[in-house]
Design a protein around this nucleic acid. Structure first.
Lengths: 354, 354
DNA sequence: TTGTAGGCGTTATCAC
DNA sequence: GTGATAACGCCTACAA
């Protein structure tokens, strides 16, 4: 028997073992009803030929594939490696594999990738998107209507059958802004998340609420449209520092933006946090290593990925189950990059009703 | 006609358009031989039903799937996001998708994942592995023998049909060690890459060659078995600093290890680079942001991923083509974390033959 | 206990 | 130009 140049199929095994195809299948899947000697013999041949069922054929036949589509802005954004790792680990436990797609938050890429994933017949979708991309929402809703598991992150819940990872962006933004206020800052700027995004809405709301609670007047010049990249931080801080009366503290959209701001400030000869305090968001690894370390809100990134994957499995096992809101608490990590209190923190008074 | 609860198949389209299945196929793939009116009509139905061919079926039929398997230690290692992004971008240009697998360098996971990828019938493999995992090599060689494209990174070329990404680890290690020597250091430690690995072999060789060239005696106590993680850096530096005569400079296996070492040194109250110089490898983004920034060897990470993917495509298009060695040059990035020369650099003398 | 039939969705090849 | 047939590899049901 000449060695095969292609991978062995179940037919090859059956032929070699002088049994029928479905006997091989039964043996491979440890089904009962096969005599021990036959079982032994077939197993040997399977070993020898390195037989494994063709997943394409199995999936086609079974009308379900052991794959999950993961669509994120970019794996090079330090927030996502942990997130994806959480997904992948959970997937692997169930012998699922993941397709990784980087959209760069381009609408066209997002829709293109979703189509590609649909072609692959992925069993579930985990999609991180922020800009209110209606095209994407439309596709996701379609999928949800067909009871395909979908978990989103960073956007509003587009349909009640879609699960969302909820991290209470408003509360996080409120807390970190309040922290700056408690340190004595009154002129607090914000470099915002991407425009027209859901996250931007909530974060800005939290920021404004904190100011309002402290009876600090809002200054629209302190609200700088931004994004999630280092460059947004450098550009944002430049605009803020160019103001006649620049802020003494800045809430950045995330740690990358904070890093961009800090680097730019250093270049300008400003001291951080003595001249300007910078707060971040996400608590990426880098944020405790740079100088100075960043005060930030910690997201349980790995766990969020894991939970997203588990939500997908939940729905795979019970297709009728609705989408769920998976909530995560956000611990605040205080490090050095906000200066010590300019004034002693005020004792908390009871909030007079507005 | 009730709306379908499952995705539309080519049969659905054919029925709706009152044509045969293969007419639909021809229209979808823009094949000639269909009358214009029919073409129009079919196209409309395709739109309306959101038809897309089932990739599983296509791939099964065509005996090739538009997927690539990517196996790396972990996406949370900051070296890999850029690498994977390079792969993914290149793949996407050709409408290929990638399966991402994290092995943590566990042999069992590596083999398990390779089997999984084989089940998925991936069209090509990109595998980063370092420990001389013979089991993995065996599988990869098997694949190569069947003319399945395989590109490896971090290990020796296991078979002439396997392509490898070659970054001249020995030269890089030689250069960065020489740099420390030129700064005047004579007591130079090394926190090595993972044990028994190919990379370790080459890097250590480069390190030793640099010492030899400078006629510095080797001190085996300065060679610390390590790895690629932050923890390896902290443990490694602790061992080195506990020596009766600790080194004044350390070559770390990569930037993460360097960061671990620097953080540990700071905790010990040592100044970096004044008391101890630390050099890294990879030039990850973090390495220029931490305090102090790290002297390091830059790997063109994104480009390496892209080239790996392109090598796979090359072989897909020409299955008979052999594996190739894809070489990358390694610029050295000098930043602040090595102290200024302790002595003025010696003028280079001609090397007397050994 | 094992074998036979049919179909998952697609496409290539060949008649009409 | 269009339509029927077969096959990719596997699995479930049913028959022997």
């Amino acid at each position: 028997m000449p060695p095969l140049t292609r991978r062995a199929t179940i037919t090859d095994v059956a032929r070699a073992a002088q049994v029928s195809i479905q006997t091989v299948s039964a043996v491979f899947h440890n089904k009962p009803g096969i005599s021990e000697p036959t079982r032994q013999r077939v197993r040997q041949i399977i070993e020898r030929l390195h037989f494994e069922p063709n997943g394409l054929a199995s999936s086609l036949r079974a009308q379900r594939s052991l794959t999950i589509g993961v669509l994120i802005p970019s794996i090079t954004n330090p927030f996502f490696p942990d997130f994806v790792r959480g997904i992948e680990d959970a997937a692997h436990l169930n012998r699922y594999s993941i397709f990784l797609c980087n959209s760069d938050q381009h609408q066209s890429k997002e829709t293109e990738y979703l189509q590609l994933l649909r072609r692959h017949n992925v069993a579930g979708y985990i999609v991180a998107y922020d800009l209110n991309n209606l095209e994407v929402e439309k596709i996701l809703v379609q999928l949800a209507l067909r009871h395909t598991p979908v978990v989103t992150f960073g956007s509003r819940q587009a349909h009640k059958r879609i699960s969302v990872l909820d991290t209470d962006n408003e509360e996080g933004s409120f807390r970190i802004t309040s922290h700056l206020i408690e340190l004595g800052h009154r002129r607090i700027g914000m470099i915002q998340p991407p425009d027209r995004g859901h996250v931007n809405l909530l974060r800005t709301r939290g920021y404004l609420r904190a100011l309002k609670k402290a009876r600090i007047a809002t200054n629209n010049e302190y609200l700088i449209p931004g994004g999630f990249d280092i460059a947004d931080g450098t550009k944002g801080i430049e605009r803020l520092m160019a103001l006649p009366i620049p802020p003494t503290a800045v809430v950045a959209a995330n740690d990358l933006v904070a890093i961009g701001a800090i680097t730019a400030l250093k270049r300008m000869g400003k001291r951080v946090p003595d001249d300007v305090s910078i707060a971040g968001y996400d608590n990426i690894q880098m944020s405790e290593l740079i100088d100075p370390p960043i005060t930030t809100i910690s997201q349980p990134t790995y766990q969020m990925g894991k939970s997203a994957m588990e939500a997908v499995f939940h729905q795979i096992n019970d297709p009728e189950s609705s989408g769920r809101v998976i909530h995560f608490d956000l611990p605040m990590i205080v490090r050095q990059s906000t200066s010590p209190p300019l004034v002693s923190p005020r004792t908390k008074k009871n909030d007079p009703s507005p």
